[in-house]
């Protein structure tokens, strides 16, 4: 099948993704933590941005991959695509959690609170809940084919719902309490922009690398299960 072959082909360059991601993140970390200047208002804590923003971006990217993969799976029914979706969800949870935790740590010194009912925070928390629900649904279903289809449906419905959730929460917040804390509009100086960009690209590449490794892991797990059960076809490895 097309998807399996494509993924197998990409897997050959897996290592390069990992190396590129590692290098970019290391340079980004050095520039972000050492050479870039602290923010005029926030001081040193602004350095959390270099990990918070890329993590949030990759989390959203992970969900987008999950959405696209789910559509693809419903279209072609390729089990490898399903493995990829499963992997993307797992990694997505990881990045979402990182974004939430680092955001919370950043909020404490700047806004003097660990948590605010900011629309973006709420949307991210709900995204985390949806992804956790996705993985739970997968573990509770026994029929592998149903598991894949149902999970894909959940991912698609959730993806369509997320912008609606975001807008409704934003609307709700502005109604009750004009956003006193503006989370955007921090003008970013150039010596902050470059490490941020490096970290962002590095995180995207890291996500791609993780996705490949994890897809491979899930695929091999299925294969082993099948082999331990009953395998009539020849397994090509």
């Amino acid at each position: 099948m097309v998807a399996s072959r494509l993924i197998a082909k990409l897997q050959r360059y897996e290592g390069w993704f990992g190396i590129a991601a590692g290098l970019l993140i290391m340079v980004g970390l050095y520039m972000g933590l050492v050479t870039s200047s602290p923010d005029y208002y926030q001081g040193e804590v602004v350095r959390i941005m270099y990990i918070h923003v890329p993590a949030a971006q990759s989390a959203m990217f992970a969900y987008t991959v999950l959405f696209g993969g789910s559509l693809w799976y419903l279209w072609k029914r390729d089990p490898v695509v399903d493995n990829m979706c499963h992997a993307a969800a797992g990694i997505g949870i990881f990045f979402t959690a990182i974004a939430l935790v680092t955001g919370s740590i950043w909020a404490k010194p700047t806004w003097n609170t660990w948590w605010t009912w900011d629309p973006r925070l709420i949307s991210f928390a709900i995204m985390l809940l949806i992804l956790v629900g996705y993985l739970m649904l997968r573990t509770f279903l026994e029929d592998k084919e149903k598991e894949a289809t149902y999970a894909a449906i959940l991912a698609i419905v959730g993806f369509i719902d997320l912008p609606i959730i975001h807008f409704s929460v934003e609307w709700w917040r502005t109604l009750h309490q004009p956003l006193s804390i503006s989370t955007r509009g921090v003008s970013i100086a150039r010596d902050m922009l470059i490490p941020l960009l490096l970290m962002s690209i590095g995180f995207y590449l890291l996500f791609a690398y993780m996705l490949m490794v994890r897809t491979q892991m899930l695929y091999l797990q299925h294969l082993l299960e099948a082999k331990r059960g009953r395998m009539l076809s020849k397994v090509h490895l």
């Binding site: 680092t102 740590i105 010194p109």
Partner: peptide, 11 residues
């Protein structure tokens, strides 16, 4: 630095 270190280590 406390918050920065915590954020980076935790992630």
């Amino acid at each position: 630095y406390g918050f920065v270190t915590a954020a980076y280590l935790i992630s």
